[in-house]
Design a protein around this nucleic acid. Structure first.
Lengths: 96, 96
DNA sequence: GTCATTCATCGTTCTTCGACGATAACCGAT
DNA sequence: ATCGGTTATCGTCGAAGAACGATGAATGAC
């Protein structure tokens, strides 16, 4: 990743982010997080017709693409979107 | 698709376009087409270290996502970017 | 008509993804 | 120390993706 992880440096990076976006459930998760600004996995699980393990996997994919950040808060994990990274994605898509 | 195929109507549609973008070769193809405005498959094949059948497959995926259009021109096929559809993608990503 | 070119499609192989249940790890509260 | 709630990971299964070579259809040139 780029300086402070904010830049999209390569087509591979852009492709990785697009791939992470390439599933309806993950788009819904992203929108949900955008509304909430922060939330825990169980809230996302309640929002989607998917098993907890499946949602956790989607969150992992979004996290590995850098689009969300998860911080441990006691027994739970709080996820929020990574604004700079999301902005970088928008810029990269705009440049197409 | 939306009116004249220009709008992104659903998360499924956005996810489908993102999925089509989710491969480095397809991003390169899209950039290449953006530079050229129009070109034939063989030119794309020459640009990439991939077999002709593989490139044809990538072009099919981009076409089915609506991001490029292919028109038959004699024995070849001319591909060009679908500008309105690409603009719709940018708007949809911006709305995240 | 024949031939070369261009491209899409088919069949194959290997890999990756999506989804689930089950399990384990972790923490707070009791 | 144990229990309940929360999340990640593992194993599995079927489905989809990526890549290739080979084949075939269409066209323009000869």
């Amino acid at each position: 990743m780029g300086i402070l992880g904010t830049m999209v440096e390569s087509d591979d990076d852009l492709a990785a982010m697009a791939k992470a976006l390439g599933h309806p459930a993950r788009i819904q998760i992203l929108r949900f997080l955008a509304d909430r600004e922060t939330c825990v996995t169980s809230e996302v699980v309640d929002e989607l017709p998917l098993a907890q393990s499946t949602v956790s996997e989607h969150l992992r994919i979004l996290r590995e693409a850098g689009l969300v950040q998860g911080e441990i808060d006691g027994p739970r994990t709080r996820y929020c979107i990574n604004p700079t990274r999301l902005a970088a994605l928008k810029m990269a898509v705009d440049s197409l």
